[in-house]
């Protein structure tokens, strides 16, 4: 659930940048990105490519959005491509980053981590997350960029695309400060970014929406059906379970709060994302 804390250890110059960097940290979960949903064949006949005719079944609360994530290292001039699939059905959203696991958030703050190969899952209720000192921004899980964060950026342009209106946002970038340059193309009807670029000077991370599909309840439920679930609260009594032992060893059941305090003692907000050591 945690991302690696190193990017957060840099001096933080503003709250906006802090929130956006949390988006950037989604990256650390994307190492093994695979189009899990595409391979599961759900919605194959309802696919709506961005260049295809508009699918009216897609709404802000029911969609499957695929992103390509590109990381460019300015020092080595190398690029890394990964993927992220967001599947939302009403109050639930799935984040699929890799083949090993994917994550689900519910609007009530509950979080589930699924392990497809083992058909096992770990559920974290709100109290579990609080006890682990994890305060997640649910809005960010559902929209990649929380509306309150977006509201702190400057709207520089609006236009009408083939299917959706688009809004272009920028941050008030000051070249004299160590603050990333942020650029977002926003789809207000879906409350999702069409594209998102964060350039820290050392590296640039870009999210590009590549595919948008409709989703229904049956399709969504099929993605999370037949998993043997365990409450995180019960992990402590389940370390003799080979699956639990393996996942703890591999760091998928999180430990460690180190790095989540800034130099002035402020608790930094962990993000949904990769495991943490």
């Amino acid at each position: 659930m945690y991302c690696h804390p190193q990017p957060l250890m840099k001096p933080i110059s503003s709250a906006i940048t802090m929130s956006l960097l949390c988006v950037l940290l989604l990256m650390c979960n994307s190492t093994y990105a695979t189009q899990v949903i595409a391979s599961s064949k759900i919605g194959a006949n309802i696919a709506t490519d961005m260049d295809e005719p508009c699918d009216t079944a897609i709404s802000g609360s029911q969609f499957q959005a695929s992103y390509q994530i590109t990381t460019t290292d300015h020092h080595t001039n190398t690029q890394q491509h990964t993927g992220l699939i967001l599947t939302r059905f009403n109050d639930n959203i799935l984040h699929q980053h890799n083949q090993v696991s994917f994550e689900a958030w519910h609007k009530n703050g509950e979080y589930v981590r699924y392990f497809p190969a083992e058909k096992r899952s770990i559920s974290y209720r709100r109290g579990d997350l609080l006890a682990l000192n994890i305060a997640s921004d649910i809005d960010r899980q559902f929209h990649l960029i929380a509306p309150h964060t977006l509201a702190q950026l400057s709207l520089v342009d609006s236009s009408q695309g083939q299917c959706y209106a688009q809004q272009q946002y920028r941050n008030a970038h000051n070249k004299n400060e160590a603050e990333p340059l942020v650029s977002i193309d926003w789809l207000p009807q879906l409350s999702l970014p069409k594209s998102l670029t964060i350039d820290t000077g050392d590296q640039r991370i870009s999210y590009q929406l590549t595919t948008l599909k409709a989703i229904n309840g049956d399709n969504f439920n099929r993605l999370i059906a037949d998993y043997q679930d365990l409450d995180f609260a019960d992990v402590g009594d389940s370390e003799s379970d080979p699956f639990i032992a393996k996942m703890i060893t591999q760091g998928f059941i999180q430990h460690g709060s180190s790095g989540f305090y800034s130099s002035d003692g402020e608790k930094l907000q962990p993000t949904s994302g990769g495991h943490h050591h």
């Binding site: 682990l132 999180q254 430990h255 460690g256 709060s257 180190s258 790095g259 989540f260 305090y261 130099s263 003692g265 050591h277």
Partner: peptide
């Protein structure tokens, strides 16, 4: 879970 591999937090 409060243990870390590496340096502990400055509290």
């Amino acid at each position: 879970p409060g243990a870390v591999i590496g340096q502990r937090d400055d509290l």
